[in-house]
């Protein structure tokens, strides 16, 4: 069949040469809210990275003469209960909080999505084993599980991130598995089998891109949960070790002084809000840009 493959029409057609990657980037750039989200995320990452070179006071230096001072020209965001500069702590704390949010969600996605795909696609015993383990993990409340794991591994920010990541994994397994169950019934997956595509490629080309959108949204939302969870772990002494700051631990101490020093809670609260908003908008934009059907 198809006898005349040899006549080779010139494929120098610009339309034929256009790469889909450019299309995704172009679409992403024209997505206004995604750009706002991207800007927010970039801003916070830049601040976190630039913390050592910014002209700010030592975040651990106490000043008993300036305890719980309201924002002023000297301390732009005020001081905390032992006189540390809130802005300095906020900027240094960005490192721990962003890392806790992004790394732990990264761990959860890295393990959860492949396990969910395998469970959903292959079914049978594989699915039974993975699903039962997932359900066992889900039976324990998220935070209790994270605390137990962190306590088991020993107190440090890294261990806290791993613990939060493992605790968040079942959510991604469940979500992915459910998506795969509906996607694998689509005709196009059968068409991939009909042309003889090997299973790993079916999973990576047909299943994964089509289950991705809800996972992206879930991941951006879980970043917020992870930042808060890190705060809780810090509060218990299982996360970021004092006196090193993190937004979560700042919030935790600030809650005792809400009446006397609301700025102590306001700044880390706003920061978490904007980081989560940023990641969320970014995730939405990414989802739309990756979907060829959206315009």
């Amino acid at each position: 069949m198809t006898q005349t493959a040899t006549q080779a029409p010139a494929p120098n057609d610009p339309l034929l040469e256009a790469r889909p990657e450019n299309r995704v980037w172009k679409k992403f750039r024209s997505h206004k809210s995604a750009m706002v989200g991207g800007a927010l995320v970039v801003f916070f990452i830049a601040i976190a990275l630039a913390a050592p070179i910014l002209p700010i006071p030592d975040p651990a230096a106490t000043d008993w003469g300036a305890v719980r001072k309201a924002p002023s020209g000297e301390n732009w965001m005020g001081t905390d209960e032992i006189g540390r500069d809130v802005m300095a702590r906020l900027i240094w704390g960005a490192q721990a909080s962003l890392a806790a949010g992004v790394v732990s969600v990264g761990i959860a996605v890295l393990f959860g999505v492949p396990l969910g795909i395998v469970a959903g696609y292959f079914g049978g015993w594989t699915d039974a084993v993975i699903s039962r383990c997932t359900e066992a993990l889900l039976a324990v409340p998220f935070l209790i599980l994270a605390i137990a794991l962190a306590a088991f591994m020993g107190p440090s920010l890294t261990n806290a991130m791993i613990a939060i990541g493992i605790s968040a994994t079942p959510i991604f397994i469940r979500l992915t598995r459910g998506q795969v169950l509906s996607i694998k019934e689509e005709d196009y997956v059968e068409s991939a089998r009909a042309i003889g595509l090997p299973t790993p490629k079916i999973l990576s080309r047909y299943i994964f891109p089509n289950v991705l959108p809800p996972i992206l949204v879930q991941a951006t939302l879980t970043i917020a949960t992870a930042i808060i969870a890190e705060a809780s772990l810090s509060f218990l002494g299982l996360g970021q070790q004092p006196p090193a700051p993190s937004w979560g631990s700042m919030l935790n101490t600030a809650k005792n002084f809400l009446n006397q020093a609301p700025w102590m809670a306001m700044w880390p609260g706003l920061s978490i809000f904007f980081v989560v908003l940023g990641f969320n908008l970014l995730g939405d934009g990414l989802r739309d840009a990756l979907d060829p059907r959206e315009h």
Binding site: D187, Y188, S191, A192, A194, R205, N210, P292
Partner: peptide
């Protein structure tokens, strides 16, 4: 080879 019934669901929407 196989031709599917529904041309709307038999092509992967994410591939050119």
């Amino acid at each position: 080879q196989f031709i599917f019934q529904d041309p709307f669901s038999s092509l992967n929407p994410r591939m050119t």
